[in-house]
């Protein structure tokens, strides 16, 4: 009996590591970022410029980085959402069983391609294509980055929305078909509305993945820290900034601390997206 209790204790301990790691992540991010609050102060994060290395005035404004992330994310979702939405409907409602068995793992394959490989493909194949298509000087810009990110978000959005569509009870569908509605009418007027919360959660999870993605954007967006809404310009995201600059900063410097602040903002953004989408999935996702 005692032994059994001890064994349970071990498993409780192991399961608590996740909580422990999560806490450590917050603690250590804040620990490294903390001195920044005193000097130069949090308000300097609101500067309009990110110029971390300068002989005159170093500036640590997160806005250009945040706007880069926003622009890239919105563009990526603009590409990814319609395609993923249509193809999740196709896979769940139209494809024959055999076809579905092949399509699903093939699209999941995309999720397992390392982002650095996609970034490499973007650099070598996609960026030159964009460059000549729009007649630009360089193909390393927001649009190239967001196309790659759209590719990465696609498998997540498809598989979560497909689950949502599949969990719509077939009685809904049958009722609609029995009333003489066509297949397409049934899909768009009955199935999709019923699955909508799940689809929204899928889009949010996809967005979370896009915001957190590092390597592909680092390699193809050109990395100019500027505030712009023009997809053909080069931008720099928060993730790329950390990856590109952390290797070269002196530990403990103001620049170093600023990069940890970038990490904190990133963490809070993805954390809220995740928690929010899980809430939606929990609340509406279960027809079962």
């Amino acid at each position: 009996m005692f032994k059994d209790k001890a064994i349970k204790g071990v498993f409780v301990g192991m399961a608590s590591t996740s909580i422990f790691i999560m806490l450590l992540i917050f603690v250590f991010l804040f620990k490294e970022a903390f001195p920044f609050i005193k000097h130069p102060g949090l308000s300097s994060l609101l500067d309009m410029k990110w110029v971390p290395v300068s002989f005159q005035q170093e500036r640590f404004g997160l806005l250009p980085l945040a706007s880069g992330t926003c622009l890239i994310t919105m563009l990526a979702m603009l590409f990814a959402v319609p395609v993923s939405f249509f193809s999740s409907i196709y896979i769940a409602e139209v494809a024959r069983p055999m076809e579905r068995e092949i399509l699903k793992p093939f699209i999941e394959l995309l999720a397992s391609i390392p982002s650095v490989v996609l970034g490499f493909f973007g650099l070598i194949v996609l960026a030159p294509l964009i460059k000549s298509f729009f007649g630009l000087q360089s193909g390393l810009n927001a649009i190239s980055g967001s196309i790659l990110l759209a590719l990465m978000a696609t498998p997540t959005i498809i598989s979560v929305s497909e689950d949502a569509i599949n969990s719509v009870p077939s009685s809904y569908k049958n009722a609609s078909l029995a009333l003489g509605a066509s297949r397409v009418q049934t899909i768009f007027k009955v199935v999709v509305p019923a699955a909508l919360p799940g689809i929204i959660a899928a889009v949010m999870l996809g967005a979370g993945r896009v915001i957190g993605e590092t390597m592909a954007v680092l390699m193809v967006t050109g990395n100019a820290a500027r505030i712009t809404a023009n997809p053909l310009e080069s931008v720099r995201t928060m993730t790329a900034t950390i990856a590109a600059e952390m290797g070269e900063v002196p530990f403990g410097s103001t620049h170093y601390q600023a990069l940890f602040w970038v990490g904190i903002v990133l963490l809070v953004m993805t954390f809220s997206l995740n928690v929010f989408s899980q809430k939606i999935l929990k609340k509406y996702g279960a027809f079962k």
């Binding site: 996740s18 957190g212 950390i242």
Partner: peptide
């Protein structure tokens, strides 16, 4: 914690 951990961007793991 598990759900949150799954959503932490990989670069943040790097910082951590």
């Amino acid at each position: 914690a598990i759900i949150t951990l799954a959503g932490v961007p990989s670069i943040v793991f790097g910082l951590f």
